[in-house]
Simulated assay, not measured.
Amino acid sequence: MADTMQFDLVSPERRLASLQAREVRIPGTDGDLTAMPGHAPLITTLRPGVLRIIKADGSSDDYAVTGGFAEISSAGTTLLAEEALHVSEVTPEIVKRFVERASEALRAAKEAGHHDLIDDAAKLMADMVAMGDHIGISPAP
């Protein structure tokens, strides 16, 4: 088994990372997981959270992701994010915008009476708040 794997992080706007990584800690919707070289093939959806990349030299890099998909294969790991920012780019205003969008989705689900979507929207909003808390930025009131 190799010590590193190819990792690519892509959002609709840009490629954020393309590098050799020892491991990638992924916020999956069914639970957090760590992709490493030799990992079994897997495709999973992402929840809002912090993605941590452990690089070949042992240093780490963190990105805030709002959702998307991750594909783990023998060739490496590719993450297709709905929206992704390096944590150094995340501001209280950005976190507030994430939370407001999730809050609007919750309000719309409640107004439309879509009871099956209300829990999903509430979870999305909680994940957005938790992501901000995780990186030390709570949404401004």
Rank of each mutant, 00 (worst) to 15 (best):
S103V: 03
Q20G: 12
A109V: 12
A70D: 02
G113E: 08
S103K: 09
I53R: 02
G49H: 03
S60Q: 14
M128C: 14
P139I: 09
I137V: 15
D32N: 11
T78W: 02
A121M: 10
D116W: 07
I53P: 04
R52F: 06
K110E: 14
G67F: 02
I118Y: 07
A56P: 07
A108T: 13
P141Y: 05
V129T: 09
D30A: 13
D119P: 01
S59N: 13
K110W: 03
A112W: 09
I118P: 02
S103M: 04
E89H: 09
A84I: 01
A130G: 07
L42Y: 11
I26E: 00
R47A: 07
T66Q: 05
G38Q: 05
D57C: 06
S138T: 13
I94M: 13
K96T: 12
E100F: 10
L51W: 02
L33A: 01
E89G: 07
T77R: 01
F69W: 09
A140I: 10
T77I: 04
K123A: 15
D57I: 08
L33E: 06
I26F: 03
T34P: 01
M5T: 06
G31E: 12
Q20K: 15
K123S: 15
Y63C: 05
L85G: 03
A140Q: 13
L42I: 14
P92N: 10
F7Y: 06
V87I: 15
G28H: 08
L124A: 06
H115G: 09
D57A: 05
R25W: 07
D8H: 08
G58T: 09
D62E: 15
D127C: 09
D62W: 12
L9W: 00
R14M: 11
D30S: 14
H86C: 03
P12A: 11
A21V: 12
L33V: 05
A112D: 11
S18R: 14
A2K: 13
R97H: 10
D8S: 14
F7T: 06
E104V: 06
A130E: 12
R15V: 10
A112V: 08
V90P: 01
T34H: 00
I54T: 15
R47L: 01
I137R: 09
H114Y: 14
S88M: 12
A35M: 05
T45M: 04
E71S: 10
